[in-house]
Structure formats: C-alpha cells, structure tokens
Design a protein around this nucleic acid. Structure first.
Lengths: 311, 311
DNA sequence: GGCATCGCTGCTCATATGAGCGCTGGGATG
DNA sequence: CATCCCAGCGCTCATATGAGCAGCGATGCC
C-alpha cells in the first residue's frame, strides 16, 4: 500500500533523524496530525519495532497476563536469548533480583535444590538481605557445609545474607517407609522439618519426569522407576514428590518414602516462589502454576508463552 | 552497573507499558527528570533499540554520510536483509522509487544494462512518469524489442512511462577498431549516440572485473582477457569500459573498440544515477563514487558501509 | 582546613505531542 | 437523484516532554 510507504518515510524521519512531527509534515506536505497518526499506525503495524536489548530486560506484558490468567501474586519473565542458552543464567539473575527486592524480607526462607536454584544462589549479590535464615525443604544432601552439592546452595544463600542455614540431614528418598519414619522421628531432622514448614517464604524449582532427573543421577531412583512414574501420569517432581498434570501425587507409596515438607505447605504459603527455565520443563511448570503450588513465578519467555497457550 | 538496571526498568515501563515519565517516577521513586534522563541514556547506550522493519526502509544516516563524504547529490541506502538475498530486489525497488519521485522528470533518460537495471525496470510501476524517452548508452543489444535481453530493459522502462525508446543497435565490443568506427559512422547508430550523450539523466550500473562479467558471458571477452585486465589494475567496467581504482581507462586499445557514450559524459552530467547491489561490486562501486562518475548512488547498507570505510 | 570545580539534581519554561471534536466529501442506499 | 453515513481531516486544548539553569554536595587541590 502507498500509505504504508509514507509510514516508513515518516518513521525514518522521526526515529532515525530526530525530526519533529511538524518538520516532517512540512517536508512531506502532510499535516502535523496526519504525521502523528501515521506514526501511531506504524507502531501498531509493527513497522516500528522498539526493543529493549539487555540481559536483564523483562517482559512485563507476559508477566501481567500470567498473573491474571493463573491468579499469581507476581510473575517475572525474561526474554529468551536468540542464540539459545544463557536462558538459565538470565532466569536465575531475575530470581535473584526478585529475592533482593522482595519486601518484607522473610525471616526464614525455605529452599529446595537443583541446578536452577544453584544458579540463583550464585546470582545473589553479597548482602542481598540481612539476617535471613535459610532452611532446606527436602532431603538429598551431604552434610558437608562447604560442598557444591545440595547443601552448598542453601549455605551460599544464607551466607550472602549474613544469615543462618538449617540443613536437612537426610537422603531425598529412602528405600523403606520405616527408615523414612525413623529419620523423621530424629530430633534434629524433625526440628528442621518444622522450621521448613513454617518458613515465611519458599523458593523452589521442579524437575521433569525423565531420565535426566536429579533423582536418577543421584541413585535415588532408577531409569525404569522414572519410566514407570511417567507411564502412570507423572509430569515431574516438586520437592522430590512426583505429581501428575493435576498436581496429585502419582505414587503414594513412593511419596511416603520421600523426606521433605508437604506440598500442601507450598499451596498454603503466602510467598512461594517457583523458578523454572528451559523447554524440558514446560509440562511440570504448567502443573505447578495451574495447581496453585506457587504464588510467584520466575521464568523465561518461551515457558511463559507455553503457559499462556490454551490447555 | 546498578544505574543500567534502572534504565532497563524505566525503558520497559515507558516503551512496553506506555507509562508516562512521572508515573514511572512515582513508581520507582525517581524524579520525572531523572526518568527522562535515564531514557535518553538508555537510547544512547543502545539498550533501547528502535528499528524500522520494512522492505522499503532506508538508512538515512548512511545516506547523509555518503552524500557528504563523496560529494554526491543524493544517496539511497536500503538495509541489507538478514537472511541475505533479496538485496538486489530491495535496491532495485529503491532505485525505481527514486526515479519515480525524481523532479523534474527528465525528457530523455540514458540507460545501461545488466541484471541490476533489469530488476529496476521490473520494479518501476506502470505510469512511473510520462513521455520519457529512454536511450541506450552502450552497445551489446539484440534488435528484438520484445526480448528479455539488454534491449528489453530499456523498452520496459520506456513503456511504463508511455515514452519512446532509442536502442543502440551495436555489439558492446568489436574485434577491430575499424569496424567500431564504421559502426559509429552509421547514421542510425550515430544519432542514438548523440541522443545518449545529451540525455538529461543517466541510469547505470557497473560490473566487477571477474569471470562472472556479462562481457564474458556474452562472448565479447574471454576469461583470460578479463584476467589480464584485472592484472593491469582494472576493478570493473562502467558502460562496458574497464577502469582502474582511480577511474582511468585500463586498456585504451580495448576502449577504442567499445561502443557507447564516453565516461566523461557521466562525470559531466547533472543527474547520473548509479545503482549497485551486492558484495562483489564493492571495489568498482568505490571507484565509481570516488572518481565522480555518479551524482546519485542507490545501494545496499553493506556496500554503503564499505564505501564509508577509510580507503 | 579552605576553596575551586565539577557533576548531578530538581526546577522553570517553551515546545512537542496526543485526545477529542466537529466538519466535509465521497460512496452506498433507497 | 436525494439522502444518509462514516472515514478521514484539521483543529483546540490539555498534557507530556526536553532544554537550559541555579543550587548543592562531593571531590580534589592547594
């Protein structure tokens, strides 16, 4: 269309050449108002694209839609970089920013573990908060407080807020229910679990239900166990507990052998922050969001769009 | 830097969320003016990128630089598309636009030939002008007025302006000087050459000096001839005449066997429009531009940038 | 320690811009 | 052919924005 060509010329003069609307009008023999309207149209039609290029940019539009659609307290969506990868870092950085800005500062913060949360911990600046007690929400931890393992992450978060850390000295999943009950009965374990359950805020991720799961990697489950879970409808795990698309526990027996706070605590919590990045986790992310396990979502743009698609 | 992060937030609120500067100020506890300054900085630092996405967009900044640097009357630069190719079409379209908009409309327009000019001809809309006589500037033409060859292009341009066409019925390069002189002495040929030399505007392209040259393709020169020319410093041809980087004829003997208007006519002309697209032609394009053969340049962004580099 | 300087702040004021409105003219409709 | 309708126009007016300036505090230099 001829009109469109004029729009292009007008946009060039306005945005590239910094001319005012009446200068352009004079130049192209258009009224100032016509020029203004053409510019508006050019933006509407996407001829003029305004883009914020920055690793810490966000997608406020998607955030708003997510909050509305899924009844969240807040959402943080970062653009997925073109060249793929770097997504995890960006999401982690965003989660760290969210935590740092969060008011009121929680007295105790319950955390799960995983690669994603490790990245979040590393992204937190020294002094991101002060006096926060960090509590582990589920087992699977070595007792070494310096290690890079599951415990290290909680330690890092606490250290950078000059706070304390309460580690949960327990495997993630035990082989026998009796052992699990015995562990939970242990005074120190029980104390941590109570502390965790009463945390003022939760920070957690979820894992997909496939062979790459951290449970397989650490030997808590075999590849065939996971396959079986998937066959029974599991889409992934939250705090070590495998759930189906509706958020229900898939295998109550397995669940009874899993150490950590109950998923109900997440649902009931006022601030339950779910961090997820990457395409592999779309299904479990959808479940977490739709079944109300989180009140705050931190994720990448691709995941966000997937969560906004119908069903 | 912390400041930079605020810039990003401000830019998001301003450009994505259409908030006013004081709304943003209130939100982030900044003064309205601070917000304004942050936005300016964000644009300067390239955090906010405003881009005009359209096949017919232009690069006015580069155009201005080219005009200044090389003393042109005008320049038209189109963005080189990302996915490569389509460059020729965009440049051709831009040249067609330029011709259509050109005032005053020339009574006679001298044209050369080549793939590029063919594309320009095809891009010209029916009725792009009225009553323009199109004259061929150099030989190499079949007499068939309908063909898709060198002549067809001139015919197309003329037809779409409901004008006349004067074809130059001659080969591009003759084997013997005597034959060339005889041809030029022919009444019809001489008349066309005079008409061409006196054209009010010229529209031409240039060819690179390599085996892909149209002269080789059409058998006027052999691959080894071209090699020899290149060895002697030729960077390409304009109207069939091979010139070196300074714009001088490389082989006067060859030149004496070439039929067409003199390059001096282009230099002297008030409106001499040079159209070029593609990386292969950077060298010859530089020569044309720096040696004053053209007063108007139509090209792609990549070529434009090459022409703006030092030496 | 005193002083000049510089960069940043928040202001005033002029300017650029967008919302809303009444008018007009060209095309559809009876 | 008369009439209606509505899209697009140029306008008024309120608002948003940027230029330029004075004040102020930090910094560095005697």
């Amino acid at each position: 269309m001829e009109e469109e060509l004029i729009m292009v010329r007008v946009a060039e003069l306005y945005y590239d050449e910094d001319k005012t609307q009446d200068e352009i009008g004079a130049l192209l023999k258009l009224s100032r108002w016509k020029v203004g309207r053409l510019l508006t149209q050019a933006r509407e039609r996407g001829i003029v694209r305004i883009e914020i290029v920055h690793p810490r940019a966000r997608r406020l539009g998607l955030e708003r839609q997510l909050v509305e659609r899924h009844g969240l307290t807040a959402a943080v969506v970062v653009p997925s970089p073109d060249g793929d990868d770097g997504t995890l870092e960006r999401v982690a950085q965003a989660a760290a920013d969210y935590l740092t800005a969060m008011r009121p500062v929680p007295r105790t913060l319950g955390v799960s573990w995983g690669r994603t949360l490790r990245a979040v911990a590393e992204s937190l600046p020294e002094g991101w908060a002060t006096g926060v007690t960090v509590v582990q929400l589920n087992g699977g931890v070595s007792l070494n407080r310096r290690s890079g393992g599951a415990a290290g992450l909680a330690v890092t978060i606490a250290q950078r807020a000059s706070g304390h850390v309460s580690l949960l000295p327990s495997p993630a999943i035990l082989e026998r229910v009796e052992t699990k009950q015995a562990i939970e009965a242990d005074r120190t374990v029980a104390a941590v679990l109570v502390e965790a359950a009463e945390a003022q805020a939760f920070l957690f991720t979820a894992g997909p239900c496939d062979a790459t799961s951290a449970h397989v990697e650490n030997g808590y489950l075999s590849a065939s166990d996971v396959e079986e879970l998937a066959r029974r409808g599991a889409v992934g795990d939250v705090l070590g507990r495998y759930i189906d698309a509706d958020g229900n526990i898939v295998d109550p027996q397995l669940d009874a052998r899993t150490v950590g706070v109950d998923l109900g605590r997440l649902r009931a919590a006022k601030r339950s922050i779910f961090v997820t990045a990457g395409d592999a986790k779309h299904d479990i992310a959808r479940t977490v969001v739709t079944s109300g396990l989180c009140s705050v979502l931190v994720t990448d743009e691709t995941t966000a769009r997937a969560l906004l698609e119908e069903r």
